Amino acid sequence: MVGCGNDSGTDADKGKSTAAPAKTAEVVIYTNADEEAQTAMKNALDKNGMKGAYLIQSFGTSELGGKLAAEGKNIEADVVTLSTYYLDSFQKKEKLFADLQNKAKTIQPSPSYWTPILGNTGALFVNTEVLKQSKLEAPKSIADLAKPEYAGHISVPDIMGSSTSWLMTQAVMSAQGEEAGAKTVAAIEKNAGAHLEKSGSGPLKKLRAGEAAVGFGLRHQAVADKARGLPIDYIDPTEGNFQLQEAAAVVDKGAKTNPNAQKVVEIIVKYGRPELLKFYPVALYEGETVSAENKPARPSFYKEPLTVELLQKHQKMVKDAGK
């Protein structure tokens, strides 16, 4: 794997640790990341001068968002990793995060106060065996899932419970407009019926079990299943492969800001990204590469900045359209 821009280090640098951190309190990291991402962050920190100098606490996305909203700069955390739309919303309401030092150059523009640690891209996928048994054609678009013939044969995440569903909603709304798109997503959710999932990984699990023929979820998971020989294939929808990122930020506590917080973020990106790329193969920094099968055909981003408020607006539109 290629590292992040000019900060990736040379061959001569490999295996070397950064300078030992100043003697200070542990850097408290609050994260919504799953186990694989947390392990990658820990490995990077432990191997690069921060072993014993940090503490990671795990939260659900909405739980961590709620803590930041309630506690602001009084939060215990020195560093947070969270979906960027949460970080942007909090920074807009209250300058909660400090500008980052020594920030590596990202492929997509990003603000001064967060830097991405991983990306997730949406796609359609099918169980090829169940699709054939159900005598269905593979969909070309997400909107196809609203057609009557797919009723009872699809599994998708619920926009009220999963940010993965927002990738699907953004794609449909970008192609059709918000009002028409909300109606289409509501029709898709209705077609999913009992296979409307609270978890973003739920639909693929239903396809693996043979309980559904078609689903929507995270592209790299379907790519991995296909590579393992499962009867799973992925489809890049005509509406586009939309992306959500999770990023790291330093809580700005003024004079009380932990002096090693910036170093923690720098190490996670500089040394953690190669391992993170293995689990979340979405290139985020200049110089990073992923395998051909992990390159979506239609990478896309929503026309508006992503915020918690925009998510809530889309959630309400979809649920109102389904009434």
Rank of each mutant, 00 (worst) to 15 (best):
C4Q: 09
G5C: 06
D7F: 13
G9L: 05
T10C: 01
A12Q: 14
A12P: 00
D13C: 00
D13H: 04
K14I: 09
A19L: 14
A20W: 02
K23G: 06
E26L: 11
V27D: 03
V27T: 12
V27I: 11
I29W: 12
Y30A: 15
T39K: 15
K42E: 15
K42Q: 15
A44G: 10
M50T: 10
K51V: 07
L55K: 15
I56D: 04
I56N: 03
S58E: 13
G66V: 12
E71G: 01
K73H: 12
N74F: 03
I75M: 09
E76V: 09
A77F: 11
D78W: 01
T81G: 12
T81Y: 07
L82E: 14
S83N: 06
D88G: 08
D88H: 09
K93Y: 01
E94C: 05
E94A: 15
K95M: 01
K95T: 15
F97L: 06
A98T: 10
A98Q: 14
D99A: 14
Q101C: 00
N102S: 11
N102L: 03
K103W: 10
T106S: 14
I107K: 11
I107E: 06
I107M: 09
S110M: 10
P116H: 02
G119I: 04
T121Q: 14
G122Y: 08
G122I: 03
G122H: 08
V126F: 00
L131Q: 08
L131R: 05
Q133G: 03
Q133C: 00
L136A: 11
E137L: 02
S141Q: 05
S141Y: 01
S141H: 01
I142T: 03
A146D: 07
E149C: 06
G152R: 10
G152L: 06
H153V: 01
M160H: 08
S162E: 04
S163V: 14
W166L: 15
M168V: 13
T169W: 02
A171M: 08
A171G: 02
G177Y: 12
E178D: 13
E179T: 14
A187S: 12
A187H: 06
I188K: 09
E189N: 14
N191Q: 10
N191H: 10
A192G: 09
A192T: 11
G193Q: 08
E197D: 13
S199E: 11
S201L: 13
L207Y: 07
R208K: 13
A212D: 04
A212P: 04
G215K: 03
F216N: 00
R219K: 15
Q221A: 10
Q221F: 10
D225V: 00
G229Y: 02
L230E: 09
I232Q: 01
Y234Q: 03
E239K: 07
Q243S: 13
Q243F: 00
E246F: 01
A249Y: 11
A249G: 05
G254C: 07
A255N: 13
A255C: 00
N260M: 11
K263E: 08
K263T: 14
V265G: 10
V269P: 01
R273C: 01
K278M: 11
F279K: 10
F279T: 13
P281K: 04
G287F: 08
A292M: 02
P299V: 04
K303C: 00
P305H: 09
T307N: 04
E309M: 03
L310N: 05
Q315S: 05
M317V: 02
V318S: 11
D320P: 02
